[in-house]
Amino acid sequence: MRTERSRGNEYCSTDDGIAGQSTGRENTPAATGRADRTAIGVDLGEHNLYTACPSPMPDWKGAYAIPGDDLCARLDALRDRVAALLAGDADRETIVAHVRHRRAALLAALDDAAREICDYASAYDHPVLVTEDSHYEPDLWAWLTDPNAHRGTAWLLPTAHLRLRAVAAEYGLEAATVPVAYSSQECHGCGTIGDRRLHQTFRCTNPDCRVDTVYADYNAAKVLAQRYYPNQRCAYRPPRSLATDERAAFVAPRSDAVDR
């Protein structure tokens, strides 16, 4: 196993879904059981695009994060530019060409980041990338034109998830998903639902837990890795299951003009 490292933190007719679909590598190879795999939780976000943390790591300090601030800034700039084009006299073809060009550059950056995570994971024995079990779909045009669209949820995070799975397949890495409920609020050390009032930090409210305060993305990645193993999941479980309406809607309804 490698030495752990840390890092500081429509108009267009395209299909991110097809480009990023899993190629069937989610099943565990017959020769290696689940208990023999090294689960590497990968949390997705905007501040840190990908945060990876292996399950056997004794704490979160060796987690590996790839910042997402640059991609977020580029998405914001693209939105402003498209708004200016729509408000001006630009024709349809001009807007389509601009969005497609910028989207291609964003996808290339996502693929580079995904390869970095796969390189990190490949140093572990029998690695499996573990992400949230989400059903989100990318809708770039919603982000560019809908004032109520969320930058991350409309396109960036679902596309990052799809691209990670596609690149993992290129590497021959297994990819698996686990339930999302409370993964960003659960302490990786004791399972208590903690305090995440500050966006970038998580504080365990259990006075007997060693975790105290950690980076929220690192904690979430560790929780995802632990959830891969049925007998190693955190002990705490909420008294009721998460209601359907409590899971945030990810994307605005699609239309024929939407660029995915």
Score class of each variant (00 low, 15 high):
124 Y>S: 02
161 H>K: 11
77 A>Y: 06
98 H>N: 05
144 L>G: 00
63 A>F: 09
97 A>I: 12
67 P>W: 09
158 P>I: 08
123 A>L: 13
97 A>Y: 05
72 C>I: 00
114 A>K: 07
86 L>V: 10
156 L>N: 03
160 A>D: 07
109 A>Q: 06
102 R>Q: 11
73 A>G: 10
92 R>C: 05
143 W>K: 04
79 R>N: 08
138 P>R: 00
112 D>Q: 15
168 A>M: 06
150 H>I: 13
72 C>H: 08
150 H>R: 14
73 A>W: 07
100 R>G: 11
80 D>M: 10
65 A>N: 13
75 L>D: 02
166 A>I: 03
69 D>G: 15
88 G>H: 06
117 I>H: 03
99 V>F: 03
83 A>N: 11
75 L>I: 02
61 K>L: 15
149 A>Q: 04
83 A>H: 11
141 W>F: 04
87 A>F: 04
74 R>M: 04
153 T>Y: 12
117 I>L: 06
127 P>F: 05
158 P>S: 03
102 R>E: 11
142 A>K: 06
81 R>E: 06
78 L>E: 04
84 A>Q: 14
129 L>N: 00
104 A>N: 05
79 R>W: 01
76 D>R: 15
144 L>I: 01
124 Y>R: 06
172 G>T: 10
110 L>T: 02
77 A>Q: 09
102 R>F: 03
162 L>I: 04
137 E>I: 09
110 L>E: 07
116 E>D: 15
63 A>S: 15
141 W>T: 09
121 A>S: 03
142 A>Q: 08
137 E>L: 08
76 D>A: 11
87 A>W: 02
102 R>V: 09
154 A>G: 02
